[in-house]
Design a protein around this nucleic acid. Sequence first.
DNA 1: GTCAAAATCACTCAAAAGTATGAAGGAAAA
DNA 2: TTTTCCTTCATACTTTTGAGTGATTTTGAC
Lengths: 155, 155
Amino acid sequence: MQLITKRKEIFIYGLSMALLLVLLKWLEAHFIIFNYRLDIFVGAIAILFTVLGIWLALKLVKPKVETLIIEKEVYIDQPANKEINQKEIERLGLSKRELDVLNVMARGLSNEEIAGKLFVSLNTVKTHSSSIYLKLDVKRRTQAIEKAKRLNIIA
Amino acid sequence: MQLITKRKEIFIYGLSMALLLVLLKWLEAHFIIFNYRLDIFVGAIAILFTVLGIWLALKLVKPKVETLIIEKEVYIDQPANKEINQKEIERLGLSKRELDVLNVMARGLSNEEIAGKLFVSLNTVKTHSSSIYLKLDVKRRTQAIEKAKRLNIIA
DNA sequence: GTCAAAATCACTCAAAAGTATGAAGGAAAA
DNA sequence: TTTTCCTTCATACTTTTGAGTGATTTTGAC
């Protein structure tokens, strides 16, 4: 939720508050309720503002987020001596998500399987794939995997 | 959050409400506030219950799901030597030509490029590819390359 | 608050990969 | 001499991948 939206919410709340106080004034001036049913009136106010508070809180609170599960097969002797080359990743300009895709791709999964594993659509995986090939300057996924392993940007 | 906990929250809220109404009654009985500052009193009630509502909502609302990245590491034994494992090749029943294809394939060449390099037709490469996948028990060329490297049947 | 990059997804078209089946010649083995 | 396996290739069909374009939303930095 954006800051602007939050402010709007607060504004609506303030407005409700103001309107209610005006209403209160009016009622007070006309001696309609207060003379004998004050407790009920205050109870109504309480309930109303409780609901308003709940609504406010639900609106203001940041919802979400989702879980990302990446299964990683690790072979005992191979990755021991090789560390991920962070500088190379930076140099190539690979984003986090692209690295995610690249890692799962290197396990031999299809785009559809990658999509399922990363909780995105097939189209998204394709988009990431394409930009990976572009950044790695390769033509195919097999080359991308080969080069990525060679440059130690994936395990 | 558990159901019991929620009930406790609701109970606390109800109790606060009741206490406040009692307080209200008492104030009403003693004519302390209402005669001339009713609006301020109601305003205070409103604010109080707004806060209560917010508190209630925050307590009751299901806790935010945090971004959870689980890297499930599967350790797999692997022969320490990095030489071509001839026995594995035999065990899998891979033929010479299939190994040829597999090796070129692992460099990231397309089937057409492989065909050109081995002086055979595209269809032949496809046939070899298919039987490679069958013998390696994989579904795609990326998996075949990955497995072949893991089993040291190619460099 | 603005701006740029990153991430998301859709849609289309083309190319590549993969499946299935059949077939023919050759070499090695039974 | 059959039989079997390897190699080669074809045709037909399906699936996957990749290129290109465009759009929206989120995020983060300034």
